[in-house]
Amino acid sequence: MNEANTRDLSAYRIEKAKELLGQADALLKMASYDGSINRSYYAIFSAIRALLALVRLDSQKHTGVIGFFDRYFVKTGICEKSLSQIVHTAFEARQISDYQDFYRPTAEQAQLQFENAQRLLRTVEETCVLLLEHKIPYPEIVER
């Protein structure tokens, strides 16, 4: 995949994250808190995959994507550790909300996940621009 393709893929994933965040907002307003938590998580997931596209990494597993994000963007200092906490919390919240019987998330829980997703998406979008403009260095990728 050449640089133009990675840029296009990254931009597509950012746009997808924005659409998912819009869905999370709509579901939050409809008091569909489990749906909002799900869409907030997938907005986060798509956003971190946008970063990974720029370094030509991806995984078929959610834990793989999150692991790459932590390894190449958080541990290297490109992204703040608080973003990793947002990602892990969102992953866990979605797992519980989607799969735990008799679980009903609250409005506050869904609102927090939505706000965290907004913050992460803004930061990832800014980071993508900085990487593409060579204002910050790309992480050194050890594996392919």
Score class of each variant (00 low, 15 high):
10 S>T: 09
80 E>T: 02
109 Q>E: 12
90 A>D: 01
61 K>R: 13
92 E>F: 06
89 T>E: 07
38 N>I: 10
80 E>A: 15
69 F>Y: 10
55 V>W: 00
69 F>N: 03
85 Q>G: 08
47 A>G: 07
117 A>W: 03
41 Y>W: 11
105 P>Y: 02
35 G>Q: 08
69 F>E: 07
10 S>A: 11
26 A>M: 15
97 S>A: 15
13 R>C: 05
123 T>I: 14
50 A>Q: 06
43 A>S: 15
51 L>D: 05
101 D>Y: 04
80 E>I: 06
117 A>V: 06
89 T>F: 08
51 L>I: 09
111 Q>V: 06
86 I>A: 05
99 Y>S: 04
98 D>C: 12
12 Y>Q: 09
70 D>Q: 11
107 A>S: 13
59 S>E: 04
87 V>H: 02
27 L>R: 14
19 E>C: 07
38 N>T: 15
99 Y>L: 14
56 R>Y: 04
88 H>K: 15
33 Y>I: 03
123 T>A: 06
49 R>N: 15
8 D>H: 08
43 A>G: 08
115 E>L: 12
85 Q>I: 14
94 R>P: 01
49 R>A: 10
100 Q>H: 10
118 Q>Y: 02
57 L>P: 00
48 I>F: 07
115 E>Q: 12
84 S>G: 13
32 S>C: 13
38 N>Y: 14
22 G>C: 10
79 C>A: 13
95 Q>N: 13
25 D>H: 08
92 E>N: 11
105 P>M: 12
43 A>C: 12
86 I>R: 05
107 A>D: 08
115 E>P: 00
69 F>C: 03
37 I>C: 12
61 K>D: 08
24 A>L: 05
67 G>C: 02
41 Y>V: 09
18 K>W: 00
74 V>F: 01
112 L>G: 00
49 R>C: 13
68 F>Y: 14
113 Q>V: 04
35 G>T: 13
24 A>W: 03
78 I>E: 00
41 Y>S: 03
79 C>V: 15
55 V>T: 07
108 E>V: 12
120 L>N: 01
83 L>Y: 15
123 T>R: 03
54 L>Y: 00
111 Q>D: 11
77 G>S: 04
117 A>I: 04
33 Y>M: 13
85 Q>Y: 10
18 K>H: 06
21 L>R: 11
74 V>K: 02
12 Y>T: 08
18 K>T: 02
72 Y>T: 03
60 Q>F: 08
61 K>H: 09
15 E>A: 14
10 S>I: 02
106 T>I: 06
104 R>A: 12
34 D>Y: 01
58 D>F: 07
26 A>H: 05
97 S>T: 09
14 I>V: 14
73 F>R: 02
93 A>Y: 00
84 S>V: 06
79 C>I: 14
61 K>M: 11
103 Y>E: 10
11 A>C: 04
12 Y>F: 12
91 F>R: 11
76 T>K: 06
28 L>H: 11
99 Y>W: 04
113 Q>F: 01
82 S>M: 11
